[in-house]
Design a protein around this nucleic acid. Structure first.
Length: 213
DNA sequence: TTGGCGATGCTG
DNA sequence: AGCATCGCCAAT
């Protein structure tokens, strides 16, 4: 009974990520990011907001070619690209598409399954802990030491596919995936490569530039 | 409720 | 100099 609804979480393989970032980014909404800390404790969060960065995109770090910072986004799908910004934040990206084609998805927000150990939080407080790319990295303790690592099961970071229940709810339009323009950019502001889960309080609240007109 | 700005340091 | 950010504080 209920067998079809309790199937084990399926790990996302690099082959699944071997597509253009604007195809992968919406598909990652509803998937789960799993972080294992050095002490073995795991933290899990539903991906609720993503942005795509792809060749020819003036907002992409790789727009002007390979550099010491961005070389990882030219690697095979399934690598992690972490960069440091504004002197105090890290941003976590998933490398997609084929080897040699710079392509990445910025993971902007997670809905955490549980509060970090020792913290007692309301659901609302919990939803704000990883609501934004910098906050996400802070709570998951992701920094440049994770750059160029591979996403695979039992590594420090890996991905799991949408659960059947989540997919069924999406199909039944219990929730929706909204597409908009990206956030915090001075170039490529017209490209609608941001996706987020509707009615989710774990999505970052900031509005894209284009919605200000 | 919204908007402007400072903190902070790496990158090209 | 500019930046794929965030939280504070002032103005509304």
């Amino acid at each position: 009974m209920g067998e079809s609804l309790t199937t084990k979480a399926e790990v996302i393989e690099s082959e699944w990520l071997g597509r253009p970032a604007p195809d992968v980014a919406p598909d990652l909404i509803g998937c789960t990011l799993v972080r294992t800390f050095p002490d073995g404790i795991q933290m899990r969060g539903l991906i609720v907001e993503t942005e795509a960065y792809a060749p020819g995109d003036p907002a992409f770090h790789a727009y002007r070619g390979r550099s010491d910072r961005n070389w990882v986004v030219f690697e095979a799908p399934g690598h992690v690209y972490v960069y440091f910004i504004y002197g105090m934040y890290h941003c976590f990206n998933i490398v997609t598409d084929v080897l040699g084609t710079p392509s990445a998805v910025l993971v902007r927000a997670l809905q955490l399954e549980a509060a970090p150990h020792g913290l007692t939080l309301s659901a609302k407080q919990l939803d704000r802990l990883a609501a934004g790319p910098g906050k996400l990295c802070r709570v998951l303790q992701i920094d440049r030491s994770h750059n160029a690592q591979r996403l695979e099961q039992n590594a420090t970071l890996w991905l799991e596919h949408r659960s059947q229940v989540w997919q069924q709810n999406l199909d039944a339009q219990q929730h929706k995936i909204i597409q908009t323009t990206r956030i915090g950019l001075t170039k490529g502001m017209d490209i609608p490569w941001r996706w987020y889960l509707s009615n989710c309080s774990a999505v970052s609240k900031k509005l894209p530039q284009s919605s200000l007109a």
